[in-house]
Design a protein around this nucleic acid. Structure first.
Lengths: 197, 197, 197, 197
DNA sequence: AATGAATGAGCATTCATTCAT
DNA sequence: TATGAATGAATGCTCATTCAT
């Protein structure tokens, strides 16, 4: 087996185990067993347990960035772009609950001090949103008074919370299409009946 | 010192230590030292470490529920009520970063299975939002097609993510007043310039 | 309640709890609860946990010594005296399983170093047997070549092992009368069919 | 070092430490240090502390069973067989005081409920005695009215109590040869001068 | 004398990491 | 590269004992 294969086998196993047990409750030996690899082998590919989490996170987010970017590039309407982002995020999280879980864990569970200096992919991911917002503003499609730095947090936070619930309640009340529409509408037009009033 | 005092001293210490180190990295002896109490004393008031986290969480959220409910009851306009909720949540989190942190931890860090059957206060908290939404809908102030069950998650998630960032970046770009206005506006009227279009 | 009463209430409770859980697994608070007394109160009557065990043991054995001595004094035939000893020991252990248990514990479970300097009652108890043996020898009823110091251990050991089994198997195969007869016979005439041969 | 070696090194160390301090006072780290092994290593070979005690006990008793069985098989006279049993037991306990101690501990110290379903070797050991008795009865060498189930307990109890004393008094009054003869005689012919009388 | 809240030393067990093979 | 036995630091929790009331 080639090195790259083993590396990704471990990443896959780690994603699964971290998602299932949480970072602190996951044991290296769990991951090793899941990856069908010896415990020690893991340390040939990662420096330590936390490094694995970070790698998993970065890799998964990296793929998301790529995938969403590809789709968005084909569009020109910022409304549609935002819609695509929301759609994609929710669909990916629904499809891959482990991924949703790992995002939750990495973002909140581990030592904040260690965290900061490497989360580049995640910044990139959030910045897809703010870039859309800014484009919309320059094209006079989005309100000028929206602060993209805040909007990107609000949108990501909303999506993330919804994904969190999916991971807790196996059967949620609303289906994914409805949820997408709802979230998109809330962010595009707000909850007011007559905004002009 | 009276028993009640010691209990709340421990809660306070636990909140601080959990916030600073995270649940898994917090040692009982850290909390004991912070509370100026012996390690064993903690077990006179709590069954185990996780029980402390849950107690801290429930108590803090309980106070939030009370405080926000009191303020909202004085209002009648659903728009204003939603604004008050957003305002309060953000102000509390800004004021008490430990609280924000503990919410983050409890919501994502610990065993989901154990969690569900006790997080009543948190449900209550979220339901404040959906109640406001429903009231707004019945008064034709909010759009009829908004699903309160999704909106409450979206709003809480947005607020929570913003608070998370405050806890990471000591100095955030935007001040609290601006952030409040932004979030309120995003949720009330959305990001579109001309929703009618 | 008079002091003596409380002392004996604690002794009774301790006997019960030690018997049920063993010395090391018994908690002071268990004994206190059983005696309907505060934990701290126990330390007004005993120096420490081990001191309680020793007190329980000495008191119980002391009573046994007294009881058996009284009965034996009425007899003159060493054969009958030995029989009475065996009878009494077995009957007491059958009647009071806690006592049997505490003997087992004290004799084997606790620190040998601490033990030695106080076990006077137990020596007295064993010496009842050797005294009987010696009397029997001087009256030419028992064999001259029997060493009383060894015989007393053999007899006590046999009785104690039988009592141990009673405490493990709730229903033993043999009833107490039969057991008494058996043990008495084994020690009086041995197992041989034709000792002369 | 091979695995088997390490296992037996730990068994040896545990036997020594349990004997010296008693089960409850023995610390895992004591055993680890005695075995020149890390604390954690012990848990690669045993599930927990109690499991070690049980393993030690079973292994030691197992060896005794084997050794005594081998010797007894060469004999045909039940009198001699009983003598061999007594001889062997006492010699082994004298030689290996730790072993005597561990028998004492395991038999009385630990949870009786757990105990029963695994002490197979010990049952085997006691049944060597009853088998001898039965053989003697069928050959009309031993009295027909002796109950083997009681006799085996009486004999084991006697031997065990004598071994207990050896472990307490470093210098006992009687030497081993004399003790053997005494015990054998007591059980074979009893203490009476004229059994016929 | 009696209480029981408070103490804090003590320890079994876990598990990330190492390293000889 | 790969293994997995070995390591030993780390810690939640217990419980005998104390002492202010």
């Amino acid at each position: 087996m080639k090195t790259a294969d083993k590396h990704s086998k471990i990443i896959r196993a780690a994603t699964k185990v971290f998602a299932k047990k949480g970072f602190f409750n996951a044991r290296i030996s769990d991951i090793a067993k899941e990856a069908k690899v010896a415990d020690g082998t893991i340390y040939l590919y990662f420096n330590n347990k936390y490094d694995m989490l970070l790698s998993v996170f970065e890799e998964k987010i990296g793929k998301l960035v790529e995938q969403i970017t590809t789709q968005i590039e084909k569009e020109d309407d910022p409304r549609r772009m935002l819609e695509i982002f929301i759609e994609n995020h929710l669909r990916e999280m629904k499809k891959n609950k482990n991924l949703a879980e790992v995002i939750q864990i990495e973002l909140r569970q581990t030592n904040k001090i260690i965290k900061d200096y490497r989360n580049n992919k995640f910044s990139e991911y959030l910045n897809i949103i703010s870039t859309i917002i800014k484009k919309g503003q320059s094209e006079k499609v989005f309100r000028q008074d929206i602060l993209p730095g805040i909007a990107k947090r609000a949108i990501f936070g909303a999506l993330d919370e919804i994904a969190r619930i999916w991971n807790i309640n196996i059967d949620s009340e609303y289906d994914i299409d409805e949820t997408e529409k709802q979230v998109t509408r809330i962010f595009l037009v707000g909850v007011l009946e007559n905004p002009q009033a």
